[in-house]
């Protein structure tokens, strides 16, 4: 009878422990030890954690591709601490760059990342990530998440020149040429310029 009672207590302890660890991890603070730069963004919180780099389409929809889509798909992070899928919107650069190029070398690998969680969790149910530093699990060397512009230059040798990439990008220039800066055509651009310049 005593053995039976002890077994019940043990099972109960394990179940409560599991339940509590679930609830704790949902509210865990990942800011300790972060060296991320602050940007003053909406509900910004420094956040460093260990995770696995995943192809988002594969992870969510089960539609998997070689090497996480070879740069053609968004990549994300499944955080070790709570198995939560983190949507990564941005790398550490200042010029309108996503993070897929920075995560791609770590496709399906375990990494440590450092950056910022951003966005109002009450309005959007969660927060999103800006990765600034990344390293493969077990490595001492952090790498800056700033590969995007170099990769863009390799893809667009004909766009070489002065000024930021987004003013030379062929796809951007094609759209602006076709529909203007406001997407309403050249006449709207001229009207705006006449009124404001």
């Amino acid at each position: 009878m005593k053995i039976f009672k002890n077994s019940i207590v043990s099972v109960f302890s394990v179940l409560v422990g599991l339940a509590l660890s679930t609830s704790v991890s949902m509210a865990e603070d990942f800011s300790a030890g972060s060296n991320a730069k602050e940007f003053g963004l909406e509900e910004e919180v420094k956040s460093t954690f260990s995770a696995k780099v995943v192809d988002m389409v594969c992870e969510i929809a089960g539609d998997c591709s070689d090497n996480c889509g070879n740069g053609e798909r968004q990549l994300g992070l499944v955080r070790d601490a709570d198995n939560k899928l983190i949507s990564v919107l941005k790398n550490g650069q200042f010029s309108f760059n996503g993070a897929a190029e920075d995560l791609l070398p770590y496709c399906n690998k375990k990494v440590d990342v450092d950056g910022l969680m951003i966005g109002d969790p009450e309005e959007f149910n969660t927060q999103f990530y800006m990765v600034q530093l990344i390293r493969e699990a077990g490595s001492d060397k952090w790498n800056k998440a700033n590969r995007w512009t170099k990769k863009w230059a390799e893809r667009n040798p004909e766009a070489k020149g002065k000024g930021p990439w987004f003013r030379r990008d062929p796809r951007v220039k094609k759209q602006v040429e076709a529909t203007g800066y406001f997407g309403l055509g050249k006449e709207a651009d001229i009207a705006y310029a006449k009124e404001n310049q």
């Binding site: 968004q74 949507s87 919107l89 941005k90 010029s95 309108f96 760059n97 996503g98 993070a99 897929a100 190029e101 995007w148 990439w165 987004f166 990008d169 796809r171 951007v172 759209q175 602006v176 800066y181 406001f182 997407g183 309403l184 709207a188």
Partner: peptide, 16 residues
């Protein structure tokens, strides 16, 4: 319209 060109930049830049 206000953000149209920036949206083009961000999309070309690989932001979701």
């Amino acid at each position: 319209t206000a953000h149209h060109t920036c949206a083009l930049w961000c999309t070309a830049g690989g932001i979701p």
